[in-house]
Design a protein around this nucleic acid. Structure first.
Lengths: 244, 244
DNA sequence: CGACAACTTGACGGGCGTCAACCGGAGTGG
DNA sequence: CCACTCCGGTTGACGCCCGTCAAGTTGTCG
């Protein structure tokens, strides 16, 4: 079980290494962090809006999303997450959760106490920088999403969401764009792009007919990446090489 | 001029103090930072998308906004800023600007070299925490904006933007909600809420007729704060007391 | 007083939401 | 093995919110 534990850390170390060079001591410090592993099912709420979390959660396997709700009950997904992502790093320094986090597939979660992670962040500047930079890239993606739901039409919005997700998955070594499994439902795509599931369906069909993507059951393929990017008005600068 | 220089720092110190307790040494370190002051006119581009800034800018007087553009040329404002705000703290750790920053009124700007600010952040943990927390609150506001443009209708969207702006201005000691000057044009409100200026105008009129706000020239008054909040579905939790 | 930016208002049209029905696959229980 | 249920996907009809276009007004600055 110990080597299994080490294996779980690899994902996190790999992710942080891409954000900032880490030396042996940094990695050692990371490995010493307490990590509680939990396997959970689909649609499991990990953090509820208004909670005051005492630990951070890291996604080790599966997919997750963060969302907020309006008074009428409508949901808005503000980000999707893939293995290696830290799901609520903002709670290191913010008390009350301003949004919820839930899995969209069955998943494996690693829990690290806030206090321990915070301590390491300040003792090991490289780790602090990596975490801080992670927050900043997070924010950059939110900005792009504001633009996406604010100023693109339905087809572009979905195409953009697909481009981003495919690119991040590829970078993390999860399948390739030509043979892909979209983990989210059309309703969830709608919640992420500010649309109804019905219209998501219509637009996916258009992307399919136009030859940008192909769908079969829950398999998904990007047939023409350049075309999809053009439709999406996609420019990966905002990912800040997090997916390069 | 020296005491004037000190006065300029007060805004920044005040802002960071609200985010994290600072001791005398922290404040001393801040005051020692190189700060270049510049007075600029309205609609001055401070940072252009794709720039690689070597210094951070702080808004000392006036108002500013950050925005992105889509291929078609449509603009999306992703945040408004008031005196005391750090306009591009993300460039401390990210190389290339993923969006532009420009003033929306005439303004006074303070420039601090990236390297110096970064050094202070790591030497003085309180300052680092304050800056980091500032980034996290920034991100939280972006999330709320994704929700705003994604899932609220036109009237609520504008009302929400107004609630947030009024609250932040009040917290910073700039006028009160009953006698207020909105620094942005209706076009800019539209760019922030993902709407056309024409429809912004229509919705402002509705808010006026319904007795939530009152307008006269460029004066602006919140007549019924509770009603405005109700229309906006406004809950200030996401500001994380940055404006409380 | 002319020029210009910002605001205002009306008419019209389209993109997307809403409602409703149906299908197909996965899981469940008999 | 089959019936049943349920969730997610698919498609069509219809309508509204908001975008578009256009014209006029107001305030400001030279």
């Amino acid at each position: 079980m110990l080597e299994d534990r080490d294996a779980q850390f690899e994902l996190l170390i790999c992710k942080l290494s891409r954000l900032q060079d880490l030396d042996a001591q940094d990695i050692e410090a990371l490995r010493k962090l307490p990590l509680e592993i939990e396997n959970v099912g689909r649609l499991r709420q990990l953090i509820r809006e208004r909670d005051e979390p005492t630990r951070c959660c890291i996604l080790l396997k599966g997919f997750a999303a963060r969302h907020k709700v309006v008074a009428s009950g409508a949901r808005q997904i503000v980000s999707f997450h893939i293995p290696g992502d830290i799901l609520d790093i903002q709670h290191l320094l913010l008390g009350k959760a301003d949004h919820s986090v839930e899995t969209i597939t069955s998943a494996r979660i690693g829990w690290i106490p806030k206090a321990d992670l915070l301590e390491v962040a300040w003792q090991k500047p490289n780790i602090g920088k990596a975490l801080w930079r992670d927050c900043l890239i997070d924010a950059s993606i939110f900005r792009e999403w504001v633009l996406n739901v604010g100023r693109r039409d339905a087809k572009s919005r979905i195409a953009h969401m697909l481009c981003e997700f495919v690119l991040r998955c590829e970078a993390a070594g999860l399948g390739d764009r030509h043979n892909f499994e979209l983990p989210m439902t059309q309703t969830q795509i709608g919640d992420a792009t500010g649309m109804t599931p019905v219209h998501v369906n219509r637009m996916l069909k258009v992307l399919d007919t136009q030859g940008a993507v192909a769908r079969d059951r829950n398999r998904f393929e990007v047939v023409n990446w350049d075309q999809l990017c053009r439709i999406a008005d996609f420019d990966p600068v905002y990912l800040h090489s997090a997916a390069a």
